[in-house]
Simulated scan of single mutants.
Amino acid sequence: MRTIHGRWRDAEDAVTLVDAHHHIWDLTRNYYPWLRDVPEEHFFLGDYEALKRDYLPDDYRRDARDHNVLMTVHCEAEWDRTDQVGETRWVTAMNRQYGFPNAIVAHAWFTTPDSAEVLAAQAGFPLVRGIRSKPVTARRPGSPVAGAPGTMQDEAWLRGFAGLERHGFSYDLRVPYWHLHEAAEVARAFPRTRIVLNHTGFPWDRSEEGLAGWRRAMETIAREPNVHLKVSEFGLRDGLWDEESNRRIVLDAVAIFGIARCMFATNFPVAGLRVEYGALVRAVKRMLTPYSAAEQDRFFFGNAVDFYRLPDPATR
């Protein structure tokens, strides 16, 4: 099999994987407001000044150099929203130049008058497999936003969401765990749209009460058979990356969804604010020792290949 490096790592701790969620950006040429001139006050990892630099395919290759990365999926990175298709066009050009990313999760607002046109334009790019469009959410549990414009109960948002099925797009769901009950209702209403929950449902509150609430929410959305999970991004705003604490999150999440619906993702370079790429991959590999080699292969690359309709790695 061919990797994004063009070589195979035979080291004992080298993991073979498809990275189901990462970003690249060129701040010199392209406009990302949150990385250029509009600080995101409530960024979930706090200070993100270190991200305000170009992160190109060669930077990703450098970070991933110790592992066998077969293919990658690029997830939209909040490119200028007045040009929603621009990022797709640029990432497609990066694929032609570097051979990856191999699939794109693009962006389209669901509530704007041109939502259907933007979805159709995204569908014109062969690498686009799905859409991520963040709904309006509350910053903490119990904050009332349900039914507000842009939320998952907003009729306009739901009409826009319905356009995913017309193009065969999946949906990358990014919400904190206290919105997963609402997301489960969306999944139930659109059973033919495949949904993948990003970043392990954001288990930010590691207190026993917080983890219990996260598990209940995860169990609720996992009941919907069209929902899958990206096991990724365990970083905390005010805490270090801790393997033992994160092991509990990973094993609980995989047990709730079943390993057949879980896929690995790095969320680099964002996750790099808390952990080095190689250390992240090796740590998750250690966490999965209770599972068989075949199950681990499904987790690290097989499930992402199926979900995002990637080429068979054996043919690469």
Score class of each variant (00 low, 15 high):
residue 154 D to E: 10
residue 268 F to P: 04
residue 211 L to N: 06
residue 257 F to K: 02
residue 4 I to K: 06
residue 171 Y to Q: 09
residue 305 V to F: 03
residue 54 D to S: 11
residue 179 H to D: 12
residue 309 R to W: 04
residue 206 R to S: 13
residue 70 L to W: 10
residue 164 L to I: 06
residue 300 F to R: 03
residue 224 E to Y: 05
residue 173 L to N: 08
residue 251 L to A: 12
residue 126 P to S: 10
residue 113 P to F: 00
residue 101 P to I: 02
residue 190 F to V: 07
residue 178 W to M: 01
residue 10 D to Y: 12
residue 55 Y to R: 07
residue 289 T to G: 09
residue 259 I to N: 08
residue 149 P to N: 02
residue 107 H to E: 04
residue 290 P to Y: 03
residue 9 R to T: 10
residue 285 K to Y: 14
residue 298 R to V: 00
residue 253 A to G: 05
residue 47 D to W: 05
residue 32 Y to N: 01
residue 160 G to Y: 07
residue 124 G to A: 13
residue 178 W to I: 02
residue 102 N to R: 01
residue 49 E to T: 14
residue 33 P to W: 09
residue 137 T to R: 01
residue 118 V to D: 07
residue 158 L to W: 06
residue 296 Q to A: 09
residue 250 V to W: 04
residue 105 V to W: 02
residue 175 V to M: 11
residue 33 P to F: 04
residue 59 D to T: 09
residue 205 D to K: 00
residue 2 R to W: 03
residue 169 F to L: 01
residue 45 L to T: 06
residue 95 N to D: 04
residue 51 L to D: 03
residue 206 R to L: 13
residue 198 N to R: 00
residue 137 T to K: 07
residue 181 H to N: 11
residue 160 G to W: 01
residue 84 Q to H: 13
residue 45 L to A: 10
residue 273 L to F: 10
residue 38 V to I: 13
residue 266 T to S: 15
residue 224 E to H: 05
residue 176 P to Y: 05
residue 59 D to A: 14
residue 285 K to H: 15
residue 50 A to C: 00
residue 282 R to F: 07
residue 172 D to K: 05
residue 314 A to L: 13
residue 175 V to C: 09
residue 184 A to W: 08
residue 15 V to N: 08
residue 146 A to M: 09
residue 283 A to Y: 08
residue 31 Y to W: 04
residue 207 S to L: 05
residue 277 Y to M: 08
residue 173 L to F: 01
residue 316 R to M: 14
residue 168 G to Q: 08
residue 42 H to F: 14
residue 227 V to L: 06
residue 63 D to P: 04
residue 120 A to I: 01
residue 197 L to T: 06
residue 132 R to G: 03
residue 186 V to W: 07
residue 260 A to D: 14
residue 17 L to R: 03
residue 13 D to E: 15
residue 285 K to F: 14
residue 255 A to S: 13
residue 76 E to M: 04
residue 225 P to A: 10
residue 51 L to S: 08
residue 277 Y to H: 14
residue 53 R to D: 02
residue 93 A to D: 13
residue 134 K to E: 02
residue 182 E to V: 10
residue 11 A to C: 04
residue 109 W to I: 00
residue 172 D to T: 07
residue 155 E to H: 13
residue 170 S to T: 13
residue 138 A to R: 11
residue 238 D to G: 05
residue 157 W to L: 08
residue 77 A to Y: 08
residue 230 K to N: 02
residue 234 F to A: 05
residue 288 L to A: 12
residue 207 S to D: 05
residue 259 I to R: 01
residue 59 D to R: 04
residue 212 A to V: 05
residue 4 I to M: 11
residue 219 E to K: 12
residue 41 E to T: 12
